[in-house]
Design a protein around this nucleic acid. Structure first.
Lengths: 412, 412
DNA sequence: CATTTAAATTTGAAGTCCAAATTAAATGGT
DNA sequence: ACCATTTAATTTGGACTTCAAATTTAAATG
């Protein structure tokens, strides 16, 4: 009945690519029959049968009966759809910011099984604190999902800063006291499951690829704006991290020679014009805040003022959106992406997601055979960042699963 | 004695990759023994034997006796080196500018067999003129190399502008009257050999990869400065043209919001600060040229003035180099390249290749795990651009040869 | 209920890679 | 001179893969 799985040990690169291709095709299409996979990927039906049998045996995918509207059914053997098997892996993902840690539990299909948000101690925090805090968050969010931490296939952590994701190494993170240490290793010593660490914007890009607008498109850019400016570059279905692993520093591309001072110490960085601190820095020149107003509230007030026509406030946002357009146009000129996704949780400050910005980008990019990039806005809701981290964890878990597939086979 | 070549017809992707890997390893190392190829690529010696036998049978490579200094010789069967077989393909490459067409004939090993330089009619020129001009240049340069045009395996053409290299389609080129036409097709109708068309900066990047500083490095950026600013991005040994084929528009990345007017119609483009026309545009404000002074001579005078301390002239170059640094820093921040090559023919105006520029780039890039990009200057001499076009032609010819390898076999 | 249609699987052939065995071609020691 | 030793290259044989073609499976149709 089923293709007998051989106890192989020697997997070829070719087979590995095939598995990845089939898996991601199923993921991107929710449900799809083997014959469609064959047609879409160019593989022969025989090969698709063989690979899907492996994936089913590994528990990563499962067959589902296709829904057929009455009267729509055709002759011939009916197609049997395949879909990801959600239960096969559940992971937690969390995002660290200076204010809080948000976390979710997702299954392989992207279903959110639980979430949590806990306050973050004021940065910079040290390793000891991290070692208490992160396991605690894992506990909490697992509980909210009704699972035990041991049931998690992995934990993903999203961070601002420069991260070597393959190593789990933190080169620099604004939240931490110490720098240059292996966070993955540290966490795996005190927790039972694999831990994966990634830059927060890259993690969101992976979430777009797995569960967002990137499902249909293999190449796109994801830009995130929050306290800083983040960029994730997806080329051919994979995160591009620069040729040495430290690229995509969009927030620190220069938009002004000898420009505004950035917290990185350089001048003229995009971040120094559009990040929260950059806006407030200028607002402080003319705005008087009530004692104890939070940064977030100040921003809200500033934005409200601009909307009401306050010229000083408006000028701040105008400049920010001009600079943002410029940075975005440079990305478009260099990467010629088919799609740019502006991803955010709430995007309450919509000056950066306005028609005006898109128009500026369009007028600042070279005509490209008449195809302009599609700029899409993706409002994820409050758990975007945590979902990104979880998506990264899923990707790593699946990557490892697929690679190990033939080496030690469980009976079906 | 020799591995018998099967008359196959069904070549796998895997084999094709293997061939490419072996071929480029031989090319990058001039001469190398099979065992070294196996060690360097991770392939088994058996596979290397098999692939190199194919390449030898196809005439692309050949065995050479290794030079052994007396006394240096070791025990064991001596290694037999392999190298590219120059005679197997000779190609012509030409570069079109508004002033002239320069052309070379190269063999597969990169040896220059001939060269020519002919005047270009004043742009814009039309298709009819092209159809006369280009075959004429091919004739001339072939003659200079002592070969007939029919002996050329291909002709490569390098152009400024936006080109779809895979199609040979010119989307936009400042030299031509008509736009959006298939130059490759047009030329192949009137000439007997395959024609390949590529953006000039990309072509130079391929020349760096095949015969220049890129031999040892699979990922690097090539920046060219001439009348405009060009960029070639090499990722993993291949030109990155953007996800839709129109990326790498470095000259039109923005370095100033609402900045100087560029000939592309936009404002603030890098080109509008560093290209020849941009420098002269400002110089015209205070410099009085003799009647009939050529653009090139004006530039020489301007540069001399700056060197002598003329404040106005100096200010022009200062700004240009500041803007150039900024653009370069943005590339470094986005791509994190291990190497940036500044390629030029003469580089007489060395303000853009100065320590000052490198320092600015360094201070405008995010710390990257302590590894900064190596910035190298490559002074090619007068045929750089034409060699680039020829290198592109070689790459295409070899790509096609390797792909077709098993499908129709000639007897050894 | 036989026929038709279409999906999925099985079969068999051809291609590929690699470990291991074999062959080739030198040096070194006696 | 001759044989052991060393190293490179090739050949052999086994394990995998992919795919075309044949076969099986599972429906709709008349």
């Amino acid at each position: 009945m089923r293709n007998s799985i051989k106890k192989t040990s020697q997997i070829t690169e070719q087979r590995s690519q095939g598995r990845n291709l089939v898996f991601s095709h199923i993921r991107n299409n929710f449900q799809v029959a083997r014959i469609d996979i064959a047609n879409a990927t160019g593989m022969s039906p025989a090969t698709v049968t063989s690979i899907t049998a492996e994936l089913i045996a590994a528990g990563l995918i499962e067959e589902v009966q296709r829904e057929v509207e009455p009267g729509q059914s055709k002759r011939g053997r009916p197609r049997v759809d395949l879909k990801l098997r959600g239960e096969s892996h559940i992971v937690a993902g969390m995002k660290l910011t200076g204010r809080s840690i948000s976390a979710v539990v997702l299954d392989l299909e992207g279903k959110q099984l639980g979430k949590a948000k806990v306050p973050m101690p004021r940065p910079p925090i040290d390793r000891t604190a991290l070692c208490k805090l992160i396991p605690q968050v894992v506990e909490t969010v697992s509980a909210s999902a009704g699972v035990k931490p041991e049931d998690l296939s992995a934990v993903g952590i999203g961070l601002p800063g420069t991260i070597q994701a393959t190593e789990g190494f933190v080169d620099w993170c604004p939240l931490f006291q110490e720098q240059e240490f292996n966070l993955k290793q540290l966490m795996e010593e005190i927790m039972p499951m694999p831990v994966f660490v990634e830059n927060d914007a890259n993690a969101v890009a992976i979430a777009e690829l797995w569960f967002g607008f990137g499902r249909d498109v293999p190449d796109f850019l994801v830009v995130t704006i929050e306290q800083g400016v983040g960029l994730g570059i997806v080329l051919d279905g994979e995160i591009f991290r620069g040729t040495q692993g430290f690229g995509a520093e969009f927030g620190h591309t220069k938009v002004q020679s000898e420009g505004a001072l950035c917290r990185c110490g350089q001048r003229g960085c995009l971040e120094a014009y559009v990040a929260d601190y950059a806006l407030l820095r200028e607002a402080n020149l003319f705005k008087h805040w009530e004692e104890g107003t939070s940064e977030e509230d100040r921003l809200v007030q500033l934005f409200a003022a601009a909307k009401e026509g306050d010229r000083m406030a408006k000028s701040i946002f105008d400049r920010a959106s001009r600079m943002f357009s410029m940075g975005l146009a440079n990305l478009v000129n260099l990467f010629d992406p088919a799609m740019v996704i502006l991803s955010g949780e709430q995007m309450q400050f919509d000056y950066l997601y306005a028609q005006q910005v898109f128009d500026m980008v369009r007028s600042s990019t070279i005509l490209k055979g008449h195809h302009e990039p599609e700029i899409r806005i993706h409002k994820w809701g409050d758990m975007m960042w945590a979902k990104g981290a979880a998506a990264f964890a899923l990707e790593e878990v699946v990557r490892i699963s697929l690679d190990q597939l033939g080496s030690a086979e469980t009976s079906a």
